[in-house]
Computed example of a mutant assay.
Amino acid sequence: MTTHVSPPASSRSSRRALRTAVLAAAPALALVASPVHADVPEGWGGETEVNSLDTLNALAIYVGAPLLLFVIILVAVYLPAMVRGEKLLPDHSAGEGQWIGGPRQGVAELPAPDNENSRAGGASGSW
């Protein structure tokens, strides 16, 4: 059997009063607030000042900066490997072929074909 214990009446009324005060405070603060009167900073008024960007500066910003960032990252990645003397490019030389799961001695362990109709010795095909 479960018995629910309710909070005392004074606790409920204090919560209700707090909830009412919080809900009433928001509209009251919005009504009390007034706009701030400040002067417009110099240069923001009706003056029109155009700052133009010439072609050389635009190229330096939009092409040179990303290119410089690319080079810095490239050097940060490859320089430690070059200092250690590691190879930077993969080795594409033709190495030994591997037969995974095949005989350990290579094709020497495979049985030789007994006659013309024998299927021993590897794959075959006919047309």
Rank of each mutant, 00 (worst) to 15 (best):
V71G: 12
I61E: 12
A25P: 05
V83Y: 06
A28L: 11
L89S: 01
I61K: 11
V63Y: 03
F70L: 04
V107H: 11
L79V: 15
V50K: 08
E42W: 01
I73C: 01
A60I: 10
T55A: 09
G46K: 04
V40A: 06
G102S: 11
W99H: 06
P90N: 02
A108R: 14
G95I: 03
H92V: 13
M82L: 03
S52N: 08
L31V: 15
S93T: 14
P35C: 12
Q105P: 01
D54N: 03
P27K: 09
R104G: 05
A38Y: 04
L23V: 08
E96S: 10
E109C: 06
L79D: 05
A38R: 12
L88S: 00
P80M: 02
R104Q: 14
G101I: 09
P41G: 13
L110R: 11
G85R: 00
V77D: 03
G97S: 07
A26G: 11
S52W: 10
A112K: 14
A28W: 04
V75C: 08
A94P: 09
E47C: 07
L69G: 10
L29G: 12
G85L: 00
V77H: 01
V71F: 09
A94N: 12
L53V: 11
P27Y: 02
H92K: 10
L69Q: 07
A28N: 09
I100G: 07
G46D: 14
A24I: 02
E96R: 01
L29S: 14
L110A: 06
L79G: 00
G45K: 03
G45E: 14
G101D: 11
P90D: 12
S52T: 15
P27A: 02
L68V: 12
V77G: 00
A108E: 14
A28Q: 13
Q105G: 06
T55R: 04
Y62P: 02
V36C: 10
S52G: 06
P35V: 07
L110Y: 07
L74A: 06
P90I: 05
S93M: 04
A38N: 15
A76S: 07
A112M: 15
A24M: 06
E49C: 12
E96C: 00
P90W: 04
P111H: 12
G102T: 07
V50M: 15
P80H: 07
V83F: 00
A65V: 14
A65R: 08
A28E: 11
I72S: 13
P111D: 15
V77P: 00
F70Y: 13
I73W: 01
A58L: 11
Q105K: 15
A33S: 14
A94C: 07
V71W: 04
G102D: 11
H37N: 13
A25G: 04
L89Q: 01
G97F: 03
P41Y: 09
I100P: 03
G64I: 15
H92E: 08
G45W: 01
V75N: 05
D54S: 05
A65H: 06
P41D: 03
E96I: 00
E96D: 01
L79S: 01
I100N: 14
H37D: 14
S52A: 10
L69M: 06
V75A: 12
G45H: 02
L68R: 07
T48N: 09
A65F: 05
L29P: 10
L23W: 09
L89T: 08
A28R: 09
P27Q: 10
P103L: 02
E42M: 05
